[in-house]
Computed example of a mutant assay.
Amino acid sequence: METTENILVLRDLTMDYGGKLVLNRVNLEVKRGQIIGYIGPNGAGKSTTVKIMLGLIQNYQGTVELFGEDIAQGDISYKRRIGYVPEQAELYDNLTAMEFLVFTGELYGMERHYAEQKAEKLLKEFDLFSVMDTRLSSFSKGMRQKVLITSSLLHNPDLLFLDEPLSGLDANSMMIIREMLAQLAEQGKTIFYSSHIMDVVEKISNRIVLLVKGEVVADGTFEELQELSQEGTLSGIFNQLTGFTDHGERASRFISIMQDGDADA
């Protein structure tokens, strides 16, 4: 359910790390109910953008507004309306899944008993009910990712930041997440989705933003991005717009080097 209400606004967002320009005057307006696919090569500035919006990085130039408020004004109450799944997260291994989720829920201002009730129900949907009182140290990567995703949704956020959220998940869980994101957007939730899995970004996003060397080089629907390229897939569009077109030759050279000398062995 996309509306005209701006949930997230970036104006001339610029970030400089010791003389290196990581973000260069990024401008973006994100509406309520949109699923934004935020893509780009490694080092393009995607994670820096997200961390600035989360309030984890200061000393940037420009303006960042969430829910109509400039986050630089010092009021951090907006964070209660945000959910976040980082690409790499350190969980508290000595805690059980339930203890971690209750702890997270309380950080977001939830009452303990309410957090416990919701966590139990959500873990059941992820087939983790039987291990909810097991320490996270024994969990597989996929199980840990399910707990992390659950922790980002427990407090029913209005804005969700997802950085490679499907990493380590089985096919069934991936289908659940993709369907859930679509339904949340229909309910008016806003989702900022960053991933290198282009086919997933292509399928779930109703708007795609491509960042290259700290600058937005494309912004539109998948169909609009297709008009900028002769390629038919998002992967092809990504490669063309970022100038990465020699992947086939590189793969061949890699194999050639790998197999060099085998014939003489």
Rank of each mutant, 00 (worst) to 15 (best):
A97H: 03
F100L: 15
F100K: 01
F100V: 07
F100E: 04
F103I: 09
T104L: 05
T104P: 01
T104F: 02
T104R: 05
G105Q: 02
G105Y: 00
E106T: 12
L107Y: 08
L107Q: 13
Y108S: 04
Y108G: 02
G109V: 08
M110P: 01
M110V: 04
R112Y: 07
H113R: 15
Y114W: 11
Y114V: 15
E116N: 06
Q117T: 15
Q117F: 07
Q117L: 13
K118Y: 02
K118F: 00
K118S: 04
L122Y: 02
L122W: 00
L122Q: 01
K124V: 06
E125I: 04
F126S: 00
F126T: 00
L128H: 01
S130P: 02
V131A: 08
M132N: 02
M132P: 01
M132A: 05
D133R: 13
D133M: 09
T134M: 12
T134K: 14
T134R: 15
R135Q: 15
R135T: 15
R135I: 13
L136K: 02
L136I: 15
K141D: 07
K141P: 06
K141Q: 15
G142D: 05
M143N: 05
M143Y: 08
R144Y: 04
K146F: 01
V147N: 01
V147G: 02
T150L: 03
T150G: 00
S152V: 06
L153V: 01
L153K: 03
L154E: 00
H155R: 07
H155Y: 03
N156Y: 04
N156T: 13
P157H: 08
L159G: 02
L160W: 01
F161I: 09
F161D: 03
L162F: 06
L162R: 01
D163K: 03
L166H: 10
G168I: 06
D170Y: 05
A171M: 14
A171S: 14
N172W: 08
S173E: 07
S173N: 11
I177S: 02
I177D: 00
E179C: 07
E179F: 03
M180H: 08
M180E: 12
A182G: 04
A182D: 10
Q183Y: 05
A185T: 08
Q187C: 04
Q187R: 12
Q187G: 11
Q187L: 06
G188N: 05
K189H: 11
T190Q: 02
T190L: 03
I191Y: 07
F192Q: 03
F192Y: 13
F192D: 03
F192W: 06
S194C: 15
S195C: 13
H196S: 12
H196D: 12
H196C: 13
I197S: 08
I197K: 10
M198S: 07
M198G: 05
D199T: 14
D199S: 15
V200M: 05
V200K: 00
V201I: 14
V201G: 04
K203W: 07
I204A: 09
S205Q: 10
N206P: 10
R207S: 13
I208S: 10
V209D: 04
L210V: 10
L210T: 06
L211Q: 11
L211G: 08
V212Y: 09
G214F: 04
G214A: 10
E215W: 06
V217K: 14
V217G: 11
D219K: 13
D219C: 12
G220V: 09
F222N: 12
E223C: 08
E223I: 10
E223F: 08
